[in-house]
Design a protein around this nucleic acid. Structure first.
Lengths: 245, 245
DNA sequence: CAGGCAAAGTTGGAGCCACAGGCGATGGTC
DNA sequence: GACCATCGCCTGTGGCTCCAACTTTGCCTG
């Protein structure tokens, strides 16, 4: 049956089987192109294509000069929670749960809301907003990117700032302002990362990202919206939704 | 600046720009490999690689014999809602909202819970459960796949059944049984589709899927769990989460 | 003995060519 | 005018080769 199939698929299927059943454990080296051509009696094109497919599936990672290896920790899954006891930070909880040191760096500045963001915040285009860009790291490696836009009236400071370390959660900051967040809505989808994103997240080519658009509501009014981007094969989003409470 | 960049990226970026800004509208033909080699003065390998990248991003689709075209409806995004007024079916709502005719086909049978499912239902391995497999279609094209596992005690029928058409929601069915669903929990992540999945969902190679693991709880007890798989670039998951109600 | 350097191996990019098989348009035949 | 066969174009697969950039290893020199 695997007779008229493309040759490279034979290689892909064999290596994939070895990876998923543990014959090739995380970190194990994958045969090089030359070794594959000999072992499977295929040409170099097929060998290269097979490696590309596996890399694209996120099962292996290739580094120039040092070969391909089975991806480390093929998905330890810290979870990303939307419902989390405030004022705890879900990212910090996930990192600590998986034994990693969470760090943050961020930069806030006054900006003009691009059309899509203005729509999400029910503002007119190019209204002033406070934009904060985050990079969340675990053991120093970037794991999540976030850009958040906040109504200026609630912003403590309109001057550019930057820093490292945890930032108080939106709910807590708003509460300190006398504004109660009543609902958080999120929209989740898959997309291809921008080159800059796959760069900073150190994603192998072909791995797509989860993009979460989150909006914080105070009654009928959206007061902050953020875009959160992270590799969705390493993370899980976890939701718990009560049924008619 | 785009000087030391790989040649194929020049082609990718130019074509991508033309697609996103509408110069190449949905359905428009993409230059063939030979045309690309001439137009951009690149080799055939680069042209092929560029087309592969764009196909992998889901922007174009290639068919043997007839060339590449800009993907139709570059993603109208019906949304997938977790919180939905019962007894409405979120899939039906999405399809009707986007002017498509929703249809279903399903098949239920008695099965033994594989380890992971048993764990999710807090059963011992290979306990009997009722497994239902769904294919949800819009205008006849498969758009979502789901497999659900239900405790036998709540199953109306243990004999294999199959049918087409809508099925009552879990919450409604359980309510009819005298069991109130109190919470739905979901875990969401990205993964590479199984060959069978990308086949039935008609996904271009390289497009990954959203995998939702959903569990229905009656108090402390899980009573049903399902795996829902769908292309996360065409669909969105939408959540609305009240903050300390 | 240590440090540095060179060689070997590896990936990723790129070019060229060939062939099988699907698709479509063109032209010729009935 | 309708229908069909043929031919050319296009993709997907696959083979071979070369090169630049990078890593690792181990040897050699100081």
């Amino acid at each position: 049956m695997a007779n008229s199939d493309p040759v490279y698929l034979r290689v892909v299927e064999d290596l994939r089987r070895q990876i998923v059943d543990g014959t090739l454990p995380p970190g194990a080296p994958i045969p090089s192109r030359h070794q594959i051509t000999r072992k499977y009696s295929v040409g170099e094109t097929a060998a290269r294509h097979a490696l590309r497919v596996l890399a694209q599936e996120g099962l292996i990672v290739g580094r120039v000069g040092s070969g391909h290896r089975v991806r480390e920790k093929p998905i330890l899954t810290p979870s990303y929670r939307s419902r989390v006891p405030e004022p705890h930070n879900p990212f910090a909880m996930d990192m600590q749960a998986s034994g990693r040191q969470p760090t943050w760096s961020w930069r806030s500045e006054l900006a003009e809301a691009p059309p899509e963001i203005a729509q999400r915040l029910q503002l007119s285009q190019w209204s002033p907003v406070i934009r904060v860009r985050f990079v969340c790291r675990g053991d120093g490696r970037p794991m999540q990117l976030a850009t958040s836009y906040e109504l200026v009236e609630f912003g403590q400071s309109q001057a550019p700032e930057e820093g490292t370390g945890e930032r108080r959660s939106t709910v807590a900051r708003m509460a300190a302002n006398g504004t109660a967040i009543t609902e958080i809505s999120e929209s989740v989808h898959i997309r291809v990362p921008q080159p800059s994103e796959s760069d900073t997240l150190e994603l192998p080519t072909g791995v797509q990202v989860l993009h979460v658009e989150r909006t914080y509501w105070a009654g009928e009014r959206p007061v902050e919206t953020s875009d959160i981007v992270f590799p969705g094969d390493r993370f899980r989003l976890v939701y718990g939704i009560p049924v008619h409470p």
